[in-house]
Protein backbone atom coordinates (compact mmCIF):
# COMPACT_ATOMS: atom_id res chain seq x y z
CA UNK A 1 0.00 0.00 0.00
CA UNK A 2 1.23 3.45 -0.69
CA UNK A 3 2.67 5.48 2.07
CA UNK A 4 0.91 8.57 3.19
CA UNK A 5 2.28 11.73 4.74
CA UNK A 6 1.51 12.00 8.41
CA UNK A 7 2.23 15.09 10.44
CA UNK A 8 2.65 14.57 14.12
CA UNK A 9 2.95 17.12 16.87
CA UNK A 10 4.98 15.42 19.57
CA UNK A 11 6.15 17.14 22.72
CA UNK A 12 5.62 20.47 21.03
CA UNK A 13 7.73 19.55 18.03
CA UNK A 14 6.50 18.94 14.55
CA UNK A 15 7.41 15.71 12.76
CA UNK A 16 6.63 14.67 9.25
CA UNK A 17 6.55 11.03 8.30
CA UNK A 18 5.87 9.05 5.15
CA UNK A 19 4.35 5.86 6.43
CA UNK A 20 1.86 3.16 5.63
CA UNK A 21 -1.54 3.84 7.20
CA UNK A 22 -1.23 0.67 9.28
CA UNK A 23 1.71 2.01 11.27
CA UNK A 24 0.67 2.52 14.86
CA UNK A 25 1.62 5.58 16.83
CA UNK A 26 3.75 3.32 19.01
CA UNK A 27 5.80 1.97 16.12
CA UNK A 28 6.06 5.45 14.63
CA UNK A 29 7.54 6.71 17.88
CA UNK A 30 9.86 3.80 18.52
CA UNK A 31 10.92 2.70 15.06
CA UNK A 32 10.74 5.92 13.03
CA UNK A 33 11.32 8.80 15.40
CA UNK A 34 13.78 7.34 17.88
CA UNK A 35 11.41 8.17 20.72
CA UNK A 36 11.86 4.89 22.51
CA UNK A 37 10.77 6.08 25.95
CA UNK A 38 7.29 4.78 25.15
CA UNK A 39 7.45 1.01 25.56
CA UNK A 40 5.87 -1.96 23.87
CA UNK A 41 4.84 -4.70 26.27
CA UNK A 42 2.01 -6.44 24.45
CA UNK A 43 0.97 -4.49 21.36
CA UNK A 44 -2.68 -5.30 22.15
CA UNK A 45 -3.89 -2.90 24.79
CA UNK A 46 -3.27 -5.36 27.59
CA UNK A 47 -0.43 -3.79 29.60
CA UNK A 48 -0.31 0.00 29.48
CA UNK A 49 3.44 0.24 28.73
CA UNK A 50 2.71 2.36 25.67
CA UNK A 51 0.67 5.01 27.47
CA UNK A 52 1.05 8.51 26.01
CA UNK A 53 -1.12 11.61 26.17
CA UNK A 54 -3.14 12.78 23.22
CA UNK A 55 -4.68 16.19 23.74
CA UNK A 56 -3.86 15.81 27.41
CA UNK A 57 -5.60 12.46 27.89
CA UNK A 58 -3.88 9.15 28.50
CA UNK A 59 -4.30 6.65 25.69
CA UNK A 60 -2.54 3.57 24.35
CA UNK A 61 -0.16 4.18 21.48
CA UNK A 62 -0.25 0.53 20.38
CA UNK A 63 -3.93 0.68 19.43
CA UNK A 64 -3.77 4.14 17.90
CA UNK A 65 -2.83 4.53 14.27
CA UNK A 66 -0.26 7.24 13.77
CA UNK A 67 -2.53 8.70 11.12
CA UNK A 68 -5.33 9.03 13.66
CA UNK A 69 -3.16 11.19 15.89
CA UNK A 70 -2.57 13.77 13.21
CA UNK A 71 -3.71 17.19 14.28
CA UNK A 72 -3.61 16.30 17.96
CA UNK A 73 -1.04 17.18 20.59
CA UNK A 74 0.95 14.11 21.58
CA UNK A 75 3.02 14.03 24.75
CA UNK A 76 5.41 11.20 25.52
CA UNK A 77 7.61 10.55 28.52
CA UNK A 78 10.42 12.44 26.79
CA UNK A 79 8.27 15.55 26.81
CA UNK A 80 7.26 15.50 30.45
CA UNK A 81 10.25 17.10 32.12
CA UNK A 82 10.37 20.80 31.37
CA UNK A 83 13.67 22.62 30.97
CA UNK A 84 15.54 19.83 32.68
CA UNK A 85 13.26 19.93 35.71
CA UNK A 86 11.69 16.60 36.52
CA UNK A 87 7.90 16.59 36.57
CA UNK A 88 6.71 16.18 40.17
CA UNK A 89 5.41 12.72 39.33
CA UNK A 90 8.82 11.72 37.99
CA UNK A 91 10.49 13.06 41.10
CA UNK A 92 8.06 11.16 43.30
CA UNK A 93 8.73 7.93 41.39
CA UNK A 94 12.45 8.33 42.03
CA UNK A 95 12.04 9.20 45.67
CA UNK A 96 9.58 6.38 46.37
CA UNK A 97 11.47 3.80 44.31
CA UNK A 98 8.33 3.21 42.29
CA UNK A 99 10.08 1.05 39.71
CA UNK A 100 12.72 -1.61 39.34
CA UNK A 101 13.48 -2.65 35.79
CA UNK A 102 11.94 0.58 34.55
CA UNK A 103 10.23 -0.91 31.53
CA UNK A 104 6.68 -0.20 32.60
CA UNK A 105 7.73 3.10 34.15
CA UNK A 106 7.22 5.61 31.34
CA UNK A 107 3.70 4.25 30.91
CA UNK A 108 3.11 4.35 34.65
CA UNK A 109 4.28 7.93 34.87
CA UNK A 110 2.21 9.12 31.91
CA UNK A 111 -0.76 7.32 33.38
CA UNK A 112 -0.13 8.79 36.83
CA UNK A 113 0.07 12.35 35.54
CA UNK A 114 -3.29 11.89 33.84
CA UNK A 115 -4.77 10.05 36.81
CA UNK A 116 -4.06 13.03 39.04
CA UNK A 117 -5.29 15.50 36.44
CA UNK A 118 -8.54 13.54 36.00
CA UNK A 119 -9.17 13.75 39.73
CA UNK A 120 -8.84 10.01 40.22
CA UNK A 121 -6.12 10.11 42.86
CA UNK A 122 -8.35 10.93 45.81
CA UNK A 123 -7.56 7.85 47.89
CA UNK A 124 -5.19 4.90 47.75
CA UNK A 125 -8.05 2.71 46.66
CA UNK A 126 -8.93 5.04 43.83
CA UNK A 127 -5.31 5.30 42.75
CA UNK A 128 -5.02 1.51 42.65
CA UNK A 129 -8.11 1.18 40.49
CA UNK A 130 -7.24 4.00 38.13
CA UNK A 131 -3.64 2.84 37.79
CA UNK A 132 -4.71 -0.77 37.18
CA UNK A 133 -4.29 -0.38 33.43
CA UNK A 134 -0.53 -0.29 33.82
CA UNK A 135 0.92 -3.68 34.63
CA UNK A 136 4.22 -3.86 36.48
CA UNK A 137 5.73 -7.31 36.63
CA UNK A 138 8.50 -6.17 38.96
CA UNK A 139 5.72 -5.45 41.42
CA UNK A 140 6.37 -1.81 42.21
CA UNK A 141 2.67 -1.23 42.87
CA UNK A 142 2.75 -0.15 46.52
CA UNK A 143 5.49 2.33 45.73
CA UNK A 144 3.63 3.57 42.67
CA UNK A 145 0.61 4.25 44.85
CA UNK A 146 2.83 6.12 47.30
CA UNK A 147 4.39 8.17 44.52
CA UNK A 148 1.04 9.08 42.97
CA UNK A 149 -0.37 9.97 46.37
CA UNK A 150 2.62 12.16 47.11
CA UNK A 151 2.54 13.93 43.75
CA UNK A 152 -1.21 14.45 44.00
CA UNK A 153 -0.76 16.07 47.40
CA UNK A 154 1.96 18.31 46.01
CA UNK A 155 -0.35 19.42 43.25
CA UNK A 156 -3.17 20.03 45.67
CA UNK A 157 -1.09 22.26 47.91
Amino acid sequence: MTKIPVHLDINGRHHELQIEPRVTLLDALRERLGLTGTKKGCDHGQCGACTVHIDGERVLACLTLAAQAEGRAITTIEGLAREGELHPVQAAFLERDAFQCGYCTPGQIMSAVACIREGHAGSDEEIREYMAGNLCRCGAYPHIVAAVRQAAQEFAS
Binding site: R30, G34, L35, T36, G37, T38, K39, T76, I77, E78, L80, A81, L86, Q90, F93, L94, E95, D97, F99, G102, Y103, T105, P106, I109
Partner: peptide, 21 residues
Protein backbone atom coordinates in the same frame (compact mmCIF):
# COMPACT_ATOMS: atom_id res chain seq x y z
CA UNK B 1 20.46 5.83 48.08
CA UNK B 2 17.87 6.22 45.33
CA UNK B 3 18.51 4.33 42.11
CA UNK B 4 21.36 5.94 40.23
CA UNK B 5 19.88 4.71 36.96
CA UNK B 6 16.53 6.15 38.01
CA UNK B 7 16.73 9.49 36.19
CA UNK B 8 17.33 7.74 32.87
CA UNK B 9 14.41 5.39 33.45
CA UNK B 10 11.87 7.99 34.50
CA UNK B 11 12.63 10.35 31.64
CA UNK B 12 12.59 7.75 28.89
CA UNK B 13 16.27 8.34 28.19
CA UNK B 14 17.29 4.80 29.15
CA UNK B 15 17.76 2.88 25.92
CA UNK B 16 16.97 -0.80 26.35
CA UNK B 17 18.73 -3.34 24.18
CA UNK B 18 16.43 -3.38 21.17
CA UNK B 19 16.01 0.38 21.23
CA UNK B 20 19.38 1.13 19.66
CA UNK B 21 19.05 3.17 16.50
Amino acid sequence: LSRVDGPAKITGAAKYAVEQQ
